[in-house]
């Protein structure tokens, strides 16, 4: 009988992780810091995601919003939008969740070395970009100009405000945050995040752009980056589709010929440009 080859069990079966800290970021956004119960810490690349399981309720794909290196546990930032994310958002500290992962491609940080980096985040899209920003700042000397452009709905929807302030204060980072809607008491920018791209100085010939946010925001940001002279091979987007298995077997996350779970979620625009604006693909 031939050798029987198996997928590692931990890709199919969750590992118990303990909630070591729960942070209420916004009205409907929560960050869970998780530690494996007795297990080993798995390396996670910025931009990868995990499948988090709420006991008896179900599983959801959640971006890793901070890697081990930056503090206690592995952070997952969750928006309370469905049954599973609601249950996860309300996990008590000390409770356990199941975790499978990490899955998917991350941001191409290695390829970005020696180049300018333009990070464009919209809303909760900042979550999977935060580990990338932190990784870049930890090895700041390896990169050229670092530009971080962040858009939110309104001032009260700003995610990770303390970190944004820390990044803004660094002389070696150009950071602009903007909101779509605001009253006059807001002192920052008002306007959609693509408008920031036009106002920012970076080398379009020698940069990499990482974009994450709602799909419309990513499409318009990609347009603005193209307009600024950045080639589609240098623009990377993190896509979202329905996911169940996360290993390319359930077929649900197909985006044209691509599986978002294993070929993505981070894709170069060059690869997905032909289908990005096709409706209902």
């Amino acid at each position: 009988m031939p050798d029987v080859r198996f997928a590692p069990a931990d890709l199919l079966v969750p590992t118990p992780y303990r909630v070591v800290e729960r942070v209420r970021e916004l009205d409907d956004v929560t960050t869970l810091r998780l530690e494996p119960r007795g297990g080993e810490r798995t390396r996670v690349n910025p931009g990868q995601f995990n499948m988090l399981y709420a006991f008896g309720i179900g599983e959801a794909a959640i971006s890793v919003s901070a890697a081990w290196e930056t503090g206690r546990g592995l952070s997952h930032t969750i928006r309370d939008v469905g049954m599973v994310s609601h249950a996860l958002s309300h996990m008590e500290e000390g409770a356990e969740v199941g975790l499978r992962g990490p899955f998917g491609s991350g941001w191409p940080l290695d390829r970005a070395e020696g180049r300018d980096i333009v990070i464009v985040a919209g809303g909760l899209g900042l979550a999977p970009l935060r580990p990338a920003i932190e990784a870049v700042l930890a090895r700041r000397e390896r990169y050229g100009r670092v530009t971080v452009l962040i858009g939110f709905r309104s001032p009260k929807d700003i995610l990770f405000p303390r970190q944004i302030r820390d990044w803004r204060e660094r002389p070696d980072v150009e950071l602009h945050a903007t909101v779509d809607h605001s009253a006059a008491d807001w002192r920052g920018h008002v306007g959609v995040v693509p408008t920031l791209i036009q106002r920012t100085a970076f080398d379009p010939e020698n940069c990499l752009a990482f974009v994450c946010g709602p799909e419309i925001m990513m499409r318009f940001s990609a347009q603005a980056l193209l307009g600024a002279g950045v080639s589609p091979a240098r623009i990377h987007l993190s896509m979202e589709r329905n996911m169940k298995c996360a290993i390319g077997h359930c077929g649900r996350c197909q985006f044209g010929p691509h599986f978002v779970c294993k070929d993505g979620p981070v894709f170069p625009l060059e690869l997905i440009a032909p289908i990005l604006s096709v409706r209902e693909i």
Binding site: G122, G123, D157, D180, H181, G191, V192, I216, M217
Partner: peptide
């Protein structure tokens, strides 16, 4: 046109709660 486009995107309220 840039202002118009930006305004349209604001109207879309892309970060809105669904």
């Amino acid at each position: 046109t840039q202002r118009l486009h930006a305004t349209r995107m604001q109207i879309l309220d892309v970060y809105g709660k669904s």
